[in-house]
Every structure is written in C-alpha cells, then in structure tokens.
C-alpha cells in the first residue's frame, strides 16, 4: 500500500473512533435507543476492520494489538505528538 492509502486508512480510524466516542456518551444514558445502537454496530465494525488492516500493514496503534513477528514494533513508528515532518 502507498502513503496515500495509509493516510486514508488512518483518517478512517480517526473518524470512526470519534463517532464511537460520541455514540458511547449518548448510549450510556440512552442504552436502548434503536437508531444509536444500529449506528454503533455499523461504525464499530468499520473501525475494527480499519484498525486490523492498519495494524497489519503499518504497525500497532494500540498496545494490546501488537502483532509480533521477530521484533516488538510498538516503539518503532513516531509517537502521535511528534507531528508530521
């Protein structure tokens, strides 16, 4: 995959994660809201697939999801506060 698809995949993780963050708050106080539940099911599935794909291709973004081959990759890629440069 090229840099463009990496950025797209990461943007997808950011967007679906935020939708989940927002839905979580609403569902905490409206645990049987059908529309919100359906939205959660749809978005969290997309998020899981995106995270899985990103982790496989570019490395882990979550410490429990490090996939080990011959090396611990958790500390290889830049930390998010380093910014793009």
């Amino acid at each position: 995959m090229d840099g463009n698809s990496r950025e797209k995949l990461f943007a997808c993780i950011e967007a679906t994660s935020f939708v989940c963050d927002e839905l979580r708050l609403f569902l905490d106080t409206h645990p049987t809201d059908r529309a919100a539940l359906d939205y959660w099911t749809k978005v969290s599935k997309v998020r899981n697939e995106a995270v899985h794909e990103y982790t496989k291709c570019y490395g882990p973004i979550e410490a429990y999801r490090v996939e080990v081959d011959n090396r611990w990759t958790w500390v290889d890629e830049p930390w998010p506060w380093e910014g793009r440069c």
């Binding site: 500390v75 290889d76 830049p78 930390w79």
Partner: peptide
Amino acid sequence: QRYSMPNRKVAGLLTDIGT
C-alpha cells in the same frame, strides 16, 4: 515528561508506565 524525551523507546516506556 514523554514529550521532551528524544529516544522513541524511552518515550514509549513513559507512555506505557504512565498508563
């Protein structure tokens, strides 16, 4: 402390221990 830690492995350690 992790933002001014120049070594990426040590910055990771600070993140993981801080967590």
